[in-house]
Amino acid sequence: MHSPVEQFTIKSLLALELFGFDISFSNSALFMMLSVLVSVTYLTMAMRRREIVPGRLQASAEMFYEFISEMVKSNVGSEGRPFFPFIFTLFIFLLFGNMLGLIPYSYTFTSQIVVTFVLAAFIFVGVTLVALIKHGMHFFSFFVPPGAPKVLVPFLIIIEVISYFVRPVSLSVRLFANMLAGHTMLKVFAGLAVMLTSAGGVFAAGSVLPFLALIGLTGLEVLVAGLQAYVFTILTCMYLNDALHLH
């Protein structure tokens, strides 16, 4: 019997080394690349005919674009426009990573804390740099809530600073934990179904129950995959908005 978390194991497909670091092309790397290739191919092919009245495929690609465009516009405003390609890439990369990961025998690279944390840390550093470049020293006023009583200000600054530095942690853990928990649940129920079937007799008939639960959970995981990509992206938009407009 395999452990339900064995599915998260990184398996090297092609051993590579750079400056003494192991950078082997692994199952995780394969699905990162697939996520990029599938999404870029889909979005390019869908727009190939450039129809004025779009067909289903083109309409779906436009829908993704307009969804993110609208998200950036409403959460960041017109100043967020230069960051649109990044936000769009982030959403599509995570969405396709999460969705491809739901295909049996595939790999979900977003279930790795290191992946989500590097993304979140990059966003955190980037957003902080944007704020520092735009507002200079004035940026630090961000940690002082406006209209707060003077006595409370030192405490509030501490709280604000902590909450600011917790951002990359919460952002990365949210996505990682959702993916980890979801895929583990799927594996647990699948394992139970297999175990009951191999037990034979009445137990084999009973394996229908975990199998039905598995079907329901798969549907739920599709929802979670979409929602977590959306949440990660919209929180990035909000952090960017804070950086550009402070309060």
Binding site: I10, S12, L16, L18, F21, D22, I23, S24, F25, S26, S28, A29, M32, M33, S35, V36, T89, F93, F109, Q112, V114, V115, V118, L119
Partner: peptide, 10 residues
């Protein structure tokens, strides 16, 4: 390896 390929693919 994960960081490397994340940077490359992203």
């Amino acid at each position: 390896t994960q960081i490397f390929w994340l940077v490359v693919s992203f």
